[in-house]
């Protein structure tokens, strides 16, 4: 069993929190917006917020990866790992694998939750597959960013700080509607994932150009983050 799993199971309270975090946000959304109808659409405001819910596991993973990596680094354990024939890539692999499994569980729970709360959507089966692919790509980019935070942060606190600088503005821009938000939204990566999801759930034809522009930008951003993460890891990630 991966040591990251062991860590989670050693702290059941924490594991519980991690698994239920997106559900808690979902519950909040439902409570506040589940009964507010949008005129003439038959949908509620909650329905429009659901795509954002599915982004939550990625943002939680960002923090998890940043913390796991920076903790092991600041305790000198990466150095210790470095003097063995196995490289620290193995350790990072275990962090990423653990987090991916957590994310899958979170998404399964979320899917159950939105079904129970009567989420209304108009996407067909292929649309949902495409939405899953978009979430997965966004997820990969976000946890790669978590790794960057872990590599660059000199302590757990600074790494968490970097992760927050990345995630908090994105969350705020996506969920709070104020006039300026419209303008700034397009500069944060999460916009493209969520925009595509929203269009797909609206039942728009998958031939819609905006979906594919969003898809491409999401893909490019993810690839850029991965490239930067790999370069930084080669330069600084071994143990320093």
């Amino acid at each position: 069993m991966s040591i990251q799993f062991k860590k989670l199971f050693r702290e059941p309270g924490y594991l519980f929190m991690v698994l239920l975090f997106p559900l808690m946000i979902g519950g909040m959304f439902y409570l506040f917006a589940g009964h507010t109808q949008i005129p003439m659409s038959g949908k509620t405001i909650y329905d429009t917020m659901v795509p954002g819910l599915f982004i939550m596991p990625a943002l939680a993973g960002l923090i998890f990866v940043a913390v796991s990596f920076s903790q092991v680094k600041s305790e000198g354990l990466l150095k210790r790992i470095y003097t063995t024939p196995t490289s620290s890539k193995e350790f990072i692999g275990s962090v990423i694998l653990t987090n991916s499994i957590i994310a899958i569980i979170q998404i399964a729970l979320l899917t159950g939750f939105v079904a129970l709360t009567g989420f209304q959507y108009d996407a067909n089966f292929i649309g949902i597959i495409l939405a899953s692919i978009i979430i997965t790509i966004f997820y990969i980019g976000t946890i790669a960013f978590g790794l960057i935070c872990g590599i660059l942060g000199s302590s757990v606190n600074t790494a968490t700080g970097y992760a927050n600088i990345y995630s908090i503005p994105q969350i705020n821009l996506m969920f709070f509607t104020f006039p300026e938000a419209e303008l700034f939204r397009r500069f944060v990566p999460v916009y493209y994932a969520m925009d595509a999801l929203t269009i797909i759930f609206d039942g728009t034809s998958l031939a819609n150009l905006t979906i594919w522009i969003d898809f491409t930008i999401n893909m490019i951003v993810t690839m850029l983050i991965i490239i930067i993460a790999v370069l930084l890891f080669k330069k600084y990630g071994k143990f320093n």
Binding site: K7, E11, G76, L77, K79, R80, T83, P85
Partner: peptide, 16 residues
């Protein structure tokens, strides 16, 4: 790496 064992000055162990 296959030949050596290193006991660092600071204790470096996984606390959990």
């Amino acid at each position: 790496k296959a030949l050596i064992g290193v006991c660092p000055q600071e204790t470096r162990v996984f606390k959990f």
